[in-house]
C-alpha cells in the first residue's frame, strides 16, 4: 500500500496560496525530494502532512487511511515522523533524554509516576541506539543547547528515527551545516534509503540529486514537475523556473 498519497491539497494564508492543488505520492521505500525556491510552500506542505496546520481542502492518505483531519500526535503514533528546518529540540534536556522522549512517546501511555525514566532500559536502550545511528553517541550526556549546530541537526534526525517511523518527513536536514557535516548526513540518508519512505525537503541540490528516487518541483504551491532525477534535470520548465537560476549562479 502506498504510504503517502496527497490529492488536491490546498492551503491559503490570506491572499497567498501556499499549497495550490497539490498531488503527490511517496511509494514504499522511496526517497522523494521536494525542491523549489524560497516561499514555494515546502515547509507548509510538511506542516500539513505532520498535522501542525490544517489544509483548506484536499486529502492526505497514509497507508490507505484518510488522515486529513487527524491530530499531530496521532500521526506520529501511526508512523509519520518529522524533523524541523529550524532546530526544535528540548534544549534543557541531554541528547540522550531528547531521544528517550521520542522513544517514550511511542511506548504506550506516560502515566508512570514512580520508576525513574533515566534508568529505564526500555527507553534509554533504543535512544542510545538511535544516537549511535546518527553518529552522536559520544555526545549522549551533553545538554541539547550545548551541542554545535550540526550536532543539533543530527539529534533532530535521531529523534525522528527513534520513533521507528514508516514515513520520515525531513525539512532541510542539512540547513546551516558545514560541508563535512552535510556529507555525513548524506551518507546517513543514503544508508536509511530503502528502509524508510522519506519525503525530503532540501536546498542542497547535490544532495538531492545524489539521493532522490523522484523529485517534485514546487513553485508557488504548485507541482510544476515530478519525475526521476534525469527527467527533472532535462525538463525545460524546471530549468526555466528554478534550476536555471542555480546553475547560472554556479
Amino acid at each position: 500500500m502506498t504510504p503517502l498519497v496527497v490529492a488536491g491539497l490546498q492551503k491559503r494564508f490570506g491572499g497567498l496560496a501556499a499549497t495550490d492543488g497539490l498531488d503527490l505520492t511517496v511509494a514504499g521505500g522511496e526517497l522523494h525530494a521536494v525542491i523549489g525556491p524560497n516561499g514555494a510552500g515546502k515547509t507548509t506542505l510538511i506542516n500539513q502532512l505532520s498535522g501542525e496546520i490544517r489544509p483548506d481542502a484536499g486529502r492526505i492518505e497514509f497507508q490507505g487511511v484518510d488522515i486529513t483531519h487527524a491530530p499531530a500526535h496521532r500521526r506520529s503514533l501511526i508512523g509519520i515522523s518529522r524533523s524541523y528546518q529550524i532546530t526544535s529540540v528540548l534544549r534543557g534536556f541531554t541528547a540522550l533524554q531528547n531521544v528517550a522522549m521520542a522513544v517514550q512517546a511511542h511506548a504506550g501511555h506516560s502515566f508512570g509516576f514512580w520508576s525513574p525514566a533515566a534508568r529505564d532500559r526500555a527507553l534509554t536502550g533504543p535512544a542510545a541506539a538511535a544516537l549511535e545511528q546518527v553518529g552522536l553517541a559520544h555526545r549522549a550526556q551533553a545538554r541539547a543547547d550545548e551541542l554545535a549546530h550540526g550536532e543539533q541537526r543530527q539529534l533532530e534526525l535521531a529523534m525522528a528515527l527513534a520513533t521507528r517511523p514508516r514515513l520520515l518527513l525531513l525539512d532541510e536536514p542539512m540547513a546551516g551545516m558545514s560541508q563535512r557535516e552535510a556529507e555525513n548526513i548524506v551518507a546517513l540518508l543514503a544508508a536509511l534509503k530503502g528502509r524508510y519512505s522519506i519525503l525530503l525537503v532540501e536546498h542542497d541540490m547535490d544532495a538531492v540529486f545524489a539521493l532522490a528516487d523522484r523529485i517534485t518541483v514546487l513553485v508557488y504551491g504548485r507541482a510544476i514537475a515530478c519525475g526521476t532525477t534525469d527527467e527533472i534535470r532535462a525538463s525545460p520548465q524546471v530549468r526555466e523556473a528554478y534550476l536555471g537560476d542555480e546553475e547560472a549562479e554556479a
Partner: peptide, 24 residues
C-alpha cells in the same frame, strides 16, 4: 523523574516538539 515528570518537563521545554513526537 518518572515518565510522567519527563513529559511534563518536555512540555516546558518545547510543547510543539512533544506533540510532534506523539504525546497528547
Amino acid at each position: 523523574h518518572a515518565r510522567f515528570g519527563m513529559v511534563l518537563q518536555g512540555c516546558r521545554e518545547n510543547e510543539r516538539r512533544m506533540i510532534a513526537l506523539g504525546f497528547p
